[in-house]
Structure formats: C-alpha cells, structure tokens
Amino acid sequence: MIVVAVAIARLHNLFAVVMLTGIFSLLGAAAYVVLDAVDVAFTEAAVGAGISTVLMLGTLALTTSEERTAPRDRVILALVVVVLTGAVLVYGTLDMPFYGDPMAAIHQHVAPRYLGASGAEIGIPNVVTSILASYRGYDTLGETFVIFTAAAGVLAILGRARGPGTSKPTKAEREDAEV
C-alpha cells in the first residue's frame, strides 16, 4: 500500500492515478479481511475499488487527464504541514490500546451487551447487521439520507444543464442527432 501511495503522489497522469487509487482500495479491503472486518472489507471493495474508480473516470472524461503542476514555492510549507500532521497522528496512536486487546475501552462499553443480547433480542446471526439496522437505526437512516442528498445534488448541478425538463435526450431526439 505504501508503494502504491508513493506512486499516486508521484504520477502526473490522472488516469493512472485513478487506477492506482482503485488498487489502493483493493489492498485496503484485503487488509480489512486480515483484520476480520469482513463487512467493512466488502464495502471497501465495492465502493472504494469499484464505484469511485468509475466515477473518477467519468470526472476525467468531463475534465482533463493531466495534472497541472503546482508552483514550486509553496512546497516547503506544504511539506512542513504534512510532516507535522503526520507526527501528531502518530503521537495519538501511542495512547491507543494494542490491536485485539480485550481490555480496550471500546470493548467495555456497549459491545458486550450487543454481542450477548442481540441473539435473543434481534434473532439474527450477523451482529453487524443487527447493530447497523436496529440498534443504530437512526445512524443508518442518516447515512441513507446522505446518499440520497448526494445523488440529488449531482442531479441539481449536472442533471439539468442540457436543457429544461430532461437530463437525457429522448430516443427520438437521439435518432435525430444521429441523422
């Protein structure tokens, strides 16, 4: 993943960059599988590696596929900001519990109740699904609204640009255009 990330930062051909981000997502999905987070891996593979690659390619088709090189004078400042942020993030991970530590705070709060009681309360083998759809139903409703809003926003910005009323030409109009 580090090699792919460096390649993404170095390349200027955005088409190759989009393909590499797809590969990066796929490697991330594999990492999630290694961490036993199959549901997250599934989402990462489908959304990160699949759909966003296609949408980025669509964006490239609308714009241009070569990166415009930035002026060089801000490079030092940007490097300082990035290094500082990375150092703060690494410093933050020092306080985190070890991976799989059963005494970690996240395993002490509501997780035992979900794991212990969801079988009797919900009756569904996949605990992730019962948390996502039932215990955290409000959150998932909010996420669904986010996706709805995203599509509505795309429609509002791009959908009506060609003319009033339709975002696509009717079949007859297309045939007219071909003639």
Partner: peptide, 17 residues
C-alpha cells in the same frame, strides 16, 4: 436508494460528455 443513487450519478456524469 444506494443502487438508484449510483446509477443516477454515473448516468448524469457520463451523459454530460
């Protein structure tokens, strides 16, 4: 909703070109 949103976004993006 997710399926419709993805199809909508894709079709809107690519019918612009």
């Amino acid at each position: 909703t997710v399926a419709a949103a993805m199809i909508t976004i894709f079709a809107t993006f690519s019918s612009r070109e």
